[in-house]
Design a protein around this nucleic acid. Structure first.
Lengths: 358, 358
DNA sequence: GTTAGCACTTTAGGAAAGAGAGTGCTAACA
DNA sequence: TGTTAGCACTCTCTTTCCTAAAGTGCTAAC
């Protein structure tokens, strides 16, 4: 898959052809390429070359006398070529930068704003999926009594507060809650949420004994943890700008647009689509590569944002295969880099203005 | 606007005509009405009557030899007529009922699920706007110290917990927080959030003196309250099923669909559209009545859900003017009634499973 | 290896024609 | 006076046909 069979001239012609098609959405023709003086060759020679590229699977004709459009293989060649050569919309990206610099914002809010801005800059629907809470380290656990047999469980993590309500059999006093929180903190601090859940399942009896007089609370905590995990899983996907798809000529037919718009409404499906454990920071999945009938004419650009090497959010941009790869690549690269800056973590950890998960 | 100029026969014909049009989406013709034996009159007589109804502004012809379609006035007549005669999709509504009976759900979650189910039952996009937090009564205020100069402010209300972070200059100990919470509770309990904010603005100095050694906290609370109000205003709109619009023949053209889908993505605009202080529980705004160019071919059905006479949420259903008014009316009435049941308030107040606002 | 020239193919768009649907009007009828 | 049959008229929708335009592939010459 290294395009090694392509002569330099073919590579250049193919690159120009795909670039043209992305810009104009009208099939590539030998005549047009000569007219735009993208080559010194004659249209006849170009025809030969285009024909050869078609034989090799990089282009295809819609009908005999029409021009050619890129195949997935053609787009793939193009994407691999521009990879390190992305174009950035500086004005738009500066707007995003100001969001990152605004220290008063919390992480989940930041993610939302990023999705909005990216969608604005790229003019494509943008999806953001927050990483699960499983890998978050527990810093402390607090229990706050509320009225009528309820209490609030707060779990502090390096990335903000998690909260969920406990359902008690009887009301409890303030001091017991404080004490129970301390005991739970001692037991579970430094573990991740995931490890805590594991521990609870595998060492249930053991822990109950250890917790002594606060074992009663433990059952409620257990109950609440299930709710917590569910709650944060559901709220972890955010999408913006779905209707921007309709600006593209490939979705002028409602039937074609409907399927993808429906997909964009289904958070669960979106999550599956965006989440993956690729090591690449930025990756493009083009058409058939997505292995989803509905998306056979789409490309999804994904960026995996990491803080301290840990995946904290994935950003996806969905559009027609004929999307502006260079611009999108630039925008995603910018985001990934912003997350990689060491001081963002500082901001996130010692955030002056409440870094909360909700 | 009382349709008093209509003979009984005209009323019946008009009703049938609109009903037909809603069902079939094809213009009303004298021939079709006779064929469906909706009348014992001849097609010629029907033609006279339809012509008269057109002169009176209830119907209009798209072109000379086509059939007629209802005008806004025609739909308005129809809606007024079916008002107390709505049809319910029992199967679908029973699904919603089970959500109401599920006592473990909190109010904002309930609202979301209701929007989803209504959208499913009616097959139209559905919008839910939660009432503001201004009118919520304060039951108690708690302050919880967090790490590194932060604290969490919790305000208990009859409809769940509000929370926001306080930014402190220096860290504080647990006991001071508990005490500060008590003092704030004594001062502000029984007021509404709105009143609390008013008080803070108008009696700033007075309160600071009163709060004595906890006056320091007060400044932070003030700061946090602004954030709180903003936060809950932004999260108060929820919409579901936007792409369901595309199922309707009137949106087979992307240009027509685009505007409304864009509108459905803009939470702020949706909020303005759905919120109003009408006394009617259920109301329909048809086409021009909405006074919005983009919505001139739409109808919005709104229901105002009240608990104890206070507006707690508005539900809006948006669709083409040719929407199934009887079915939608039935669904909305069902929802409003469920909210009106006295025991929902109980559920909401003494909810066993944490009735939280987030 | 490149290119000019030409025949061939296919689409897009418009004009023309005919069928079908529906109305309005007139005149007859109860 | 209200109702209805009948008919001419209008308008749309579909089909068919035609032409222009665009683009290719192939061949032969350079």
């Amino acid at each position: 898959m290294s395009d090694i069979d392509l002569s330099d001239r073919k590579k250049q012609i193919l690159y120009q052809a795909v670039e043209d098609y992305i810009e104009n959405a009208s099939p590539i023709t030998s005549g047009a390429m000569v007219q735009k003086s993208e080559t010194t060759l004659s249209s006849a020679t170009l025809r030969n070359e285009l024909n050869a590229l078609e034989q090799m699977g990089y282009l295809k004709q819609l009908h005999t006398s029409g021009g050619r459009v890129p195949t997935t293989k053609g787009y793939r060649f193009f994407v691999n070529t521009i990879k390190d050569n992305c174009r950035a919309d500086l004005d738009g990206l500066m707007k995003i930068k100001s969001v990152f610099e605004q220290r008063t914002i919390n992480l989940s809010e930041l993610i939302k704003v990023v999705a909005e801005k990216i969608s604005e800059v790229t003019d494509y629907p943008t999806i953001v999926s927050l990483g699960g809470i499983d890998k978050l380290e527990i810093l402390s656990i607090k229990i706050i009594p509320l009225m009528t047999n309820q209490a609030l469980m707060l779990i502090q993590t390096p990335r903000g507060l998690l909260n969920n309500t406990l359902e008690l059999e009887q009301s409890v006093d303030e001091q017991s809650c404080i004490d129970a929180g301390r005991v739970l903190t001692n037991k579970f601090a430094k573990m991740t949420i995931g490890e805590m859940v594991d521990n609870i399942v595998t060492k249930h009896q053991e822990i109950i004994q250890e917790l002594n007089e606060y074992a009663g609370f433990f059952e409620y905590v257990l109950q609440s943890l299930v709710g917590l995990t569910k709650k944060y899983a559901q709220n972890g996907v955010y999408s913006k700008g779905a209707t921007k798809l309709l600006k593209n000529p490939e979705y002028q037919n409602v039937e074609q647009a409907k399927e993808i718009l429906q997909l964009l409404e289904d958070k669960e499906e979106l999550k599956n689509l965006i989440d993956d454990d690729s090591d690449d920071e930025i990756e493009f999945s083009i058409g058939d590569e997505l292995c989803d009938e509905r998306l056979s004419d789409c490309t999804i650009a994904k960026a995996h944002c990491k803080i301290n090497g840990e995946n904290i959010a994935s950003v996806g941009i969905i559009g027609p295969k004929r999307m502006d790869y260079a611009k999108i690549s630039g925008a995603l690269k910018f985001i990934v880099d912003e997350f990689n800056k060491p001081d963002l973590l500082e901001t996130s950890k010692n955030n002056k203005k409440g870094d909360q998960y909700d």
